[in-house]
Amino acid sequence: MKVGLFVPCYVDMFHPETGIATLELLERFGLSVEYPVDQTCCGQPMTNTGCEREAAKTEELFVRNFEKYDYVVTPSGSCTNQVRNNMTAIDQTDAVKHVRSRTYELVEFLHDVLKIDAFPWAEFPHRVALHNNCNTLRNLRIASMSERREESFSKPKALLKMVRGIEFADLTRPDECCGFGGTFSVFEEGVSAKMGQDKVTDQLKSGAEYVTSSDSSCMMHQEGCARRMGANLKYIHIAQILNGARA
């Protein structure tokens, strides 16, 4: 199984440790993982703003970079959603279809494809609040959502439960959007920041020491709000916890 690693622009620039943890974690399971160094972005900022035409070349580049792999794995559900569900600015050739159907968010790849049942190296004796990115939650269906009447499930929680010592902190509004929303965070800055502050307040009230998520983008926004508020909370990507980070 040949796996291509996609490291989203935020992760590349601000959280290289998340990219490293993702790579190392996949390698622990004996996979051959490559990172095509010419990658940039999945096209989400443009598509998200409605500028499909402007996204086309970026999407083409993405497909060129990843068409030769059996799977594309990325530590971001939001980017996965873009590739799988919204990469429509370009002709839907076989290569495009292949890449779109084979791109997985890290948690679903571990849970659904590799069906991992242990992380023997992982220990994280801390109180952790879990945040699900909205695309990851409601479009990729990584967990059940409170809006629907359905069996409750959570793939990230199922994985985290295999980590020794971890304790979960419950939020009062676990599924409430944190206000990042991609370009929304810039164009609608006021509401975005208020939603972020409310999310941080909920996290603080839950008694969490750490917040974890399979999306760096939401956490970058939350962390920015938390720092400005002087909130004592730490943000860590789920890949790091699963890879055995010791805080």
């Binding site: 290289p16 440790e17 990219g19 990172y35 972020g196 920015g224 709000c225 400005r228």
Partner: peptide
Amino acid sequence: KRDIPETPKQTFNEWY
């Protein structure tokens, strides 16, 4: 209303 993230010494791309 948000702090700008700190920039690490190197990008993932550089590390790789």
